[in-house]
């Protein structure tokens, strides 16, 4: 289950009640950010961060570096295939 979408935190609406405004493709909505606050992140640190939103709650901050790493691995899986293909083509 669990429909979740990445959205960007635009501003903090109510720091006491942990409410922020997020934007996803021009759609905005107020969400609760309690689950992404911890000793490293205070509300104001979250501005412009991307978070995963599920039923009106930010559940996790998107790790940009890890996202890039995953994309790199994905690209490499492809390259391997292409290389094998090239060898096959070459041997014909």
């Amino acid at each position: 289950m669990c429909l979740g979408v990445p959205a960007q935190i635009k501003k903090i609406i109510d720091a006491d009640n942990q409410i922020a405004l997020v934007d996803l493709s021009g759609v905005s909505r107020e969400i609760n950010i309690a689950c992404v606050l911890n000793k490293d992140y205070q509300a104001q640190d979250l501005i412009d961060k991307w978070v995963l939103v599920h039923v009106g709650f930010a559940l996790s901050i998107v790790d940009e570096e890890e996202a890039q790493k995953t994309l790199k691995i994905l690209a490499e899986i492809g390259e391997l295939s292409a290389a094998i293909e090239d060898i096959k083509q070459g041997s014909k």
Partner: peptide, 12 residues
């Protein structure tokens, strides 16, 4: 449209 897609992504 992009925002229409956004509404669809959020609400499934």
């Amino acid at each position: 449209r992009i925002p229409t897609r956004g509404v669809c992504e959020i609400l499934g």
